[in-house]
Write a protein that binds this DNA or RNA. Structure first.
Lengths: 214, 214
DNA sequence: CTATGTGAATTTATTCACAGCA
DNA sequence: TGCTGTGAATAAATTCACATAG
């Protein structure tokens, strides 16, 4: 069995598994059962076993899963063996926060360059990352960049994304509160904090006590 | 037909609809069809019609939807008529960014108070929001607070959440990269940027060109 | 003729139930 | 016995197909 038909829901849980297993490994833990792991990541143990089963037999009956073995496997499938370079577009409050954070912790992803429209910002360096002028974006060669993090205001998101695509970027993590209209070969994930907060308030007010999201 | 059995997926789209309709209204638009709206929010038009149908007939056949009517309706169901007060726990880079942003735009939600462990920060005011000492959290009366935004480091998230619950908070928007173990009447939504970025990288590398997330 | 509203069909995801290996 | 791996059953969400109202 190979990754030729991995359900989307499964794929979206893999990074969570990966990070959690890294944490367990750092505590010195070497094996774990699907039920113990399920409690930690708050995913039903059957779902975990099924998720792993799409990639073949990763565990051992009566034993559970070897954490290092899972990590080695997930590192490959999540392309964490090689460094994934991303750019950040929009160095406002949120963009600056992400630059300072820069996904350092056990994560082979790095913001290598940032862009901003503000001429006072371009040329500066924040947390080791140089800020370029937004006007340069579409002319740069960013074909070695896998994705862009979009932290520009809503009204600039579409045009910024188009410039990034012109420079070679194929994916976006979009923090701007708009949906982008982009070519079908471009993949976008939205991180929409306002929507999340309103959804939270909706569920709290309508009493969905049981369900934990994601 | 009332909101007595609204699917979770529908509920999670309502804030997106609401914001997008606010934007359309601000452009002076008064009516919209499900298909035109679907293109804007990137949700299939049938899904939109079905979503609205759970709340009764909000549109008119042959006409579409009256934007103001939808807005009035969504404002109620999303509890945007009254101000929703939230607190922010953890005034690091991300927390500071959220304080500066503070959900101002057409959103009746406000961060009214922040907490941080750093004694140098408590007492200060950022973007009009006062920062309190983390030690005060569990003793404060936050029963008028609907939710807390958790922007503390992973290893502090669980204990910070427990203190917030002690103070009366019932919901969390959790930015910390851990799953929280909390009483079943507490609702948590996770905003997990690292997971999102890794999922994006996964899909880009495994070629899922078609699908747009969320 | 347009565009909603909705049962029915389909697809996707989760959960059950248990066979089988260590 | 303990725990995985997986077909079968169920549940949830989406999409189809079309009747119907304006």
């Amino acid at each position: 069995m190979q990754n030729h038909k991995v359900p989307q829901a499964t794929a979206e849980r893999l990074p969570l598994y990966y990070r959690s297993l890294q944490h367990l490994a750092s505590l010195g833990k070497t094996r774990i059962s699907s039920s113990e792991f399920g409690e930690i990541v708050q995913v039903d143990s059957t779902t975990i076993r099924k998720d792993f089963s799409y990639f073949g037999a990763l565990g051992r009956k009566g034993y559970g899963y070897n954490i290092q073995h899972l990590l080695d496997f997930l590192r490959k499938i999540l392309y964490q063996e090689e460094l994934s370079k991303v750019i950040l577009i929009g160095v406002g409050h949120l963009g600056t926060a992400l630059l300072n954070h820069n996904f350092q912790k056990n994560n082979n992803t790095r913001i290598v360059k940032a862009y901003d429209t503000d001429p006072l910002k371009s040329g500066k360096v924040i947390a080791g990352t140089e800020i370029h002028a937004m006007d340069d974006l579409e002319h740069d060669d960013n074909r070695d960049i896998i994705a862009a993090i979009l932290t520009v205001p809503a009204d600039q998101a579409q045009s910024a994304a188009e410039k990034a695509i012109a420079s070679g970027v194929k994916g976006f993590l979009n923090f701007a509160p708009v949906r982008l209209s982009l070519p079908p070969d471009v993949y976008v994930r939205h991180v929409d904090m306002t929507v999340e907060l309103q959804a939270l308030i909706y569920f709290l007010n309508h009493g969905m006590e049981e369900k934990q999201s994601q």
